[in-house]
């Protein structure tokens, strides 16, 4: 992590550089059914981070040797649009994107009833339109909504957010400045309404065991908030007959 003496990320009153309390998220908006072609889609914005997720399937899986007679599979691709970051992203997956694709798949899989669709694949595309930290967490939240929008049977929604450490404080929903100059980034994903964590990664310059516990509590609080927002977005789309 880069240390920079010029930047005050959190003041003595526990107010963060962008005016937030330690346990406060940036403004959140969620919308499902935003794309025409995809079987399911969602746009999730948290602060300046904007993610589009699209789902296709279940459909026949190619190449055939990947087909499984007992279950369908989930294929996840996390991708950053070239103009989504300060420095242009070279198109195509790099090592970071490949790893995020993997952990996002592992985060989503536990709730999807893939065994109902043997031999098939469900493709999930997470497209970062604009990045200001928490892109993997926000991408997973969006992907879960897109899966629901596609009508893929699931036992629950997956909700993800990032806790972190800034100075000596554990905070919720790190912004990109806090990610770059703070002490820890703790993205986590949970099965909505439960205590089950399906993704956890930590980048930190030093976190005590107590701080880890606090970060997990903070993360759960964030997930609970986002879970309500997810349900609201689905209700908005599906609670009335469109005439």
């Amino acid at each position: 992590m880069v240390q920079d003496a010029d930047i005050t990320l959190i003041d003595d009153n526990g107010i963060r550089f962008d005016g937030r309390q330690t346990d406060e998220m940036r403004p959140v908006s969620m919308e499902v059914g935003v794309l025409h072609n995809a079987d399911g889609s969602a746009m999730v914005e948290i602060g300046k981070t904007r993610i589009l997720a699209a789902v296709y399937g279940p459909k026949e899986l190619h190449p055939q040797h990947l087909q499984d007679q007992t279950t369908g599979i989930l294929q996840v691709r996390y991708n950053m649009a070239p103009f989504s970051t300060e420095d242009r992203q070279k198109p195509g997956p790099n090592r970071r994107a490949s790893e995020i694709s993997l952990v996002a798949r592992k985060a989503l899989e536990p709730v999807v009833f893939l065994e109902e669709y043997p031999m098939t694949t469900v493709k999930v595309y997470i497209e970062v339109i604009e990045a200001d930290a928490s892109t993997r967490a926000t991408g997973i939240t969006a992907a879960s909504l897109a899966l629901a929008d596609a009508g893929i049977p699931m036992k629950g929604l997956i909700t993800a957010c990032a806790a972190g450490k800034v100075g000596d404080s554990i905070v919720l929903d790190v912004a990109s400045k806090e990610d770059s100059y703070g002490e820890a980034d703790v993205p986590l994903a949970m099965i909505g309404g439960t205590d089950d964590i399906t993704l956890l990664q930590i980048d930190s310059s030093g976190l005590t065991h107590e701080e880890l516990d606090e970060a997990l509590r903070m993360g759960k609080k964030g997930c609970e908030y986002l879970f309500e927002k997810q349900k609201e977005a689905l209700y908005r789309q599906y609670s009335q007959v469109i005439t």
Binding site: K48, A81, F83, S84, T85, E86, D87, R88, I129, E130
Partner: peptide
Amino acid sequence: IHEKAEGSCCVQLGNTKVIAGVK
């Protein structure tokens, strides 16, 4: 693209949707 691109535009033609972003 509000901040990260130096110029941008999203165009929808019917159901076709394209973003151009300038870096």
